[in-house]
């Protein structure tokens, strides 16, 4: 089951099962701190496992982000800003970077990526 907030892209990719919520990108599973809404969306998504019978089905959920839909006209779909991209990890905070560098020496790093004990070292991506 894939959740989605981009209906046209989900239609193009055509996964076996999908549920669509018409929210701004970055909120596929609900609004921040709205536990009740998050739970409702998730129950709808998981319930579809038991009700869908056709490959390629998309269940449309009724939830609305706001009454006037102004978010759809406020730079939605801005997408790619083409900043220079490198293989440097992009930490949320400097503190995360320090924590990860300690973690590299510990077992923690086994869960960093698809690194396995047989390989020489974690890849640059972690």
């Amino acid at each position: 089951m894939t959740m989605s907030s981009a209906l046209d892209i989900t239609r193009a990719v055509n996964p076996p099962r999908a549920v669509f919520t018409d929210f701004p990108l970055g909120h596929t599973a609900g609004k921040p701190f709205d536990r009740r809404l998050q739970r409702q969306i998730m129950i709808e998504a998981l319930s579809a496992f038991e009700t869908m019978g056709q490959p390629g089905s998309i269940k449309m959920l009724p939830f609305e982000w706001d009454a006037d839909h102004s978010w759809k006209h406020a730079g939605a779909g801005k997408g790619d800003t083409r900043q220079a991209r490198t293989e440097e990890p992009q930490y949320q905070t400097e503190e995360d970077k320090a924590a990860a560098q300690e973690g590299r020496l510990a077992e923690e790093c086994i869960v960093c990526s698809n690194w396995s004990p047989g390989s020489e070292a974690p890849r640059s991506t972690g």
Binding site: E87, Q90, A100, E102, G103
Partner: peptide
Amino acid sequence: GQVAFHFKDDTS
């Protein structure tokens, strides 16, 4: 504590 993702086709 984990390594963050990078932005250049990171498939990890």
